[in-house]
Design a protein around this nucleic acid. Structure first.
Lengths: 356, 356
DNA sequence: AACGGGTTTGAGAACGTTCTCATCTATTTG
DNA sequence: CAAATAGATGAGAACGTTCTCAAACCCGTT
């Protein structure tokens, strides 16, 4: 079998199918849409004509009149990030089962891109929208979406003042859970490598990163350890940034004996730096990450993490969106999913300073 | 700022904006669409009215008449797979720059899902479509798409008989490049862990997996090593499958001294098995993967791979699609991107059999 | 033979744009 | 001062469906 495109290929319309079957457009529509009632033989004739003419229903025209596009928008930082990849995979699986497709946008944590993406999705009349907001502050566009009546669900961070459905984890708890095993092992100089921006608002729910820093500080305080802000290394969300900042931390005069990394990019960056410096985990430096990755168990030693259920988050987000499609008046909910510490082998007792 | 959704929120239309601005629909359309000619003051009045009424242009209606949806479809096996994630990220970046959005579908390598996805995209009148075909045999649906005139670009495998634009790598070469360093190190029993189905057609271009097996065999033959088909472990594309099959290979009476894995899921699976058996790389078993992953360099030892330029593949695919949108008559091209061996530290001399 | 109830069908409006064409106004030119 | 020209505007068709409503039809009952 071989095929070539027909450049002047003009698609056949319902009217043409109807004419070919010798019925009216209305009847053809009924036969093909399987609604209303139509005589079986007539239906067969229509279906046959449709097949012969290679009819493909125009979804745009359909959406035009039904008001439903069966499309959900998804606006996230970066689909290449395994966390979002997993969440989006689950999101689109659940959406797909309900007959919806997903229009995907990457923002690279840029509010401008997010704004534009949301606008475009709005114009395309998506039935609903999932957003993992880049900023907890610049949210006017999200309020607009919400007010316009488009179902909206927030992923990974709830926004104070925006009563939209949200699916989040307890980031403060995640930060605490990651820090505690290090404290328990005797560490006192524990650094945090994060992409959070500490200069933002104080609400720990505002951004995942911020909440995790708060949790980290809580854990330190509870253990009676002084919080040294020089040990909290902030920067952008890229692996390269984490790598470079970990180098800086470890090269300092009074380096940390343990690291907490707040997402898998940070973890990878930290590992690269540790590797490059010839340090061993956990002998020279201990490590606990937040956000699991499938390759962390095959490291030597395997890396302990606080796992966040990315797939569940995505699936739940889709579920909430679909529910709201069905009953727009339902009260908005914020669902918090549990995080769990997975102890592997990257935590040990602190080595003597300058041991390596 | 706080907001709540207006349940009965009915969107304002161009007609309403026109009425509010005291002009005709045609003029309002011109003012907002910045085409034709309209007096500046009139335009201002329209823009102001649009702002006041929170007008958002209905993209569906627009597409209806222009015949363009500014949407590209993408049908791949699994967005969670880093290879596809990288390719899709690049694809949607390039598409986005050209003002197109991406409608994404996962097929899990299932032809039925692929078929359905392609159908839906067709109905939605996407401007073009990228498909990474699940099967080199069942391709009737792809021929239909191609014949219908929808621009189509094939990712990762070219289909004999389908003269569509394709973006591929030289899989035979990849298989050879992965095998050669192992042969050079002295290995004679080299196993391959792949997701390819060996019972398919013989054309090595048909599926990536098959091509890689062919390359592997070529390399062996050139080196004068007998090809033992028991060493080629086939199965599905999941990590768990690769893990289990690697166990089986290593538990055999005459186990391989080296492994080639044909994608990053296979590599991870193999690593898990090796890890679980307490074997060391490269002392007990050597390993070369196909498809790089960002975490492979931080393993101890770092794993050597044949890298395939996923991002470039995706970007190029988008480029070809956009080009074909502009000039539908252009002759179809097959672009083959280069693969390169990245030597790290997972290849050593073969240990004595039963050494461990 | 007339009637009633259900099924099957068709005509045509509606969805919200874009775009062609004709009209009308202001400006320039002979 | 009339005519030509360019710019600004409006009326209305078109895109391809879905869906309401009324008409036609069929069958059994009185």
């Amino acid at each position: 079998m071989s095929s070539s495109p027909r450049p002047g290929a003009t698609r056949s319309t319902l009217a043409e199918v109807a004419a070919a079957a010798g019925v009216s457009v209305a009847t053809a529509a009924r036969a093909l849409g399987s609604y209303g009632s139509v005589r079986p033989e007539t239906a067969d004739r229509v279906v046959e004509a449709a097949r012969r003419l290679r009819y493909s229903r125009n979804g745009l025209a359909r959406s035009m009149v039904t008001g439903r596009t069966h499309t959900l928008g998804a606006v996230v930082a970066d689909i290449e990030n395994p966390f979002f990849a997993r969440a989006m995979r689950a999101f689109s699986d659940v959406a797909g089962q309900a007959g919806c497709q997903v229009l995907l946008s990457n923002t690279d944590e840029d509010v401008g891109s997010e704004c534009a993406a949301v606008e475009v999705l709005q114009r395309r009349r998506v039935d609903g929208m999932l957003v993992a907001p880049a900023s907890p502050v610049e949210v006017a566009h999200l309020h607009r979406v919400h007010r316009s009546g488009t179902p909206l669900v927030l992923l990974d961070r709830a926004l104070p003042g925006l009563t939209a459905d949200s699916v989040v984890i307890d980031n403060v708890l995640a930060g605490r859970l990651a820090t505690e095993p290090l404290l328990a092992a005797g560490h006192r100089r524990i650094a945090m490598v994060t992409s959070a921006d500490l200069d933002g608002p104080d609400d720990p729910r505002a951004t995942p990163g911020l909440g995790r820093v708060v949790g980290y500080r809580q854990a330190l305080r509870v253990a009676g350890v002084d919080v040294d802000d020089a040990l909290v290394s902030t920067g952008d969300f890229r692996t390269a940034s984490a790598e470079q900042r970990t180098h800086a931390l470890l090269a300092g005069p009074h380096p940390p004996t343990a690291l907490v990394t707040t997402d898998s990019s940070m973890t990878l960056g930290a590992l690269r730096a540790v590797h490059a410096r010839g340090l061993r985990i956990p002998d020279d430096v201990s490590l606990v990450g937040i956000d699991d990755a499938d390759w962390l168990p095959v490291l030597d030693p395997p890396v302990s993490v606080v796992d966040q259920p990315a797939a569940q988050l995505g699936a739940l987000a889709a579920g909430l969106l679909l529910r709201r499609l069905a009953e727009p008046g339902a009260p908005p909910v914020i669902r918090t999913l549990p995080v769990t510490l997975i102890s592997r082998g990257s935590v040990g007792p602190p080595g003597l300073p300058g041991d390596h």
